[in-house]
Design a protein around this nucleic acid. Structure first.
Lengths: 108, 108
DNA sequence: TCCTTTCATCGACGTTCTTCGATACAGCGA
DNA sequence: TCGCTGTATCGAAGAACGTCGATGAAAGGA
């Protein structure tokens, strides 16, 4: 279990401090994970349920199974999403704190 | 003056509706604008001041002037940033409502 | 044991992105 | 008018990305 690095706020207002280089990169990785329409849709779908079977995602999008798997990997590595395997099936769920921390990076 | 399209929430919780295709794409464009460390740093810098001269950005980063100009264009086209020209100099400022709407897309 | 199903990984292809030097353009001072 | 300075755009090179078919690995049923 990887711990989530703290995401300092990018903005807004005079209290926003200059970001160190690592923070810029970490934030860019997270935003990059959301920088694709399919991944936005996956996150949206995951947010509506407790967990979602990969098999369901595979039929929900008009993309090949390896492509969906690839997108899930990117979301996983960005920490936005989490998975469990039960028997043959894999289930993914959102990591709400990760979304929340991204939200926090956009100010508040 | 282009009006900002409304960004529906991606998440979180049961009230999150399935995103139409155009909304996925619009959101992906905005997140893509923040999917680069340099652009994150630019936004961060803009958020700390009312407006910033391009000349200042050019010296603040170890990147060529055309590269900075390119990143500013991407931020501009995503609606996150706004520019004015005064004489020879160009000044950029953040569009707080655009950031706020992105924040809103990450839930409330 | 063998076959089927589910998911992840690999390798490849075309597209998009980041970056740069060169160039164009506009404002200003001499 | 001429040259200088600050920005934007162009064109190209290399890296990263999205996508797929083929393959691999693990679980379950016959």
């Amino acid at each position: 279990m990887k711990t989530l690095p703290v995401l300092p706020p990018i903005c807004c207002g005079p209290e926003a401090l200059p970001l160190p280089v690592e923070a810029r990169e970490e934030l860019a990785v997270r935003f990059k994970a959301l920088a694709d329409p399919t991944r936005v849709a996956i996150v949206n779908r995951l947010s509506a349920a407790d967990e979602v079977c990969v098999c369901e995602l595979n039929t929900a999008f008009e993309l090949s199974q390896p492509t969906i798997s690839h997108h899930l990997k990117i979301l996983r590595e960005a920490g936005l999403v989490d998975s469990t395997r039960r028997g043959t099936w894999a289930y993914y769920r959102l990591v709400p704190e990760a979304i929340e921390s991204l939200r926090g990076a956009l100010g508040g």
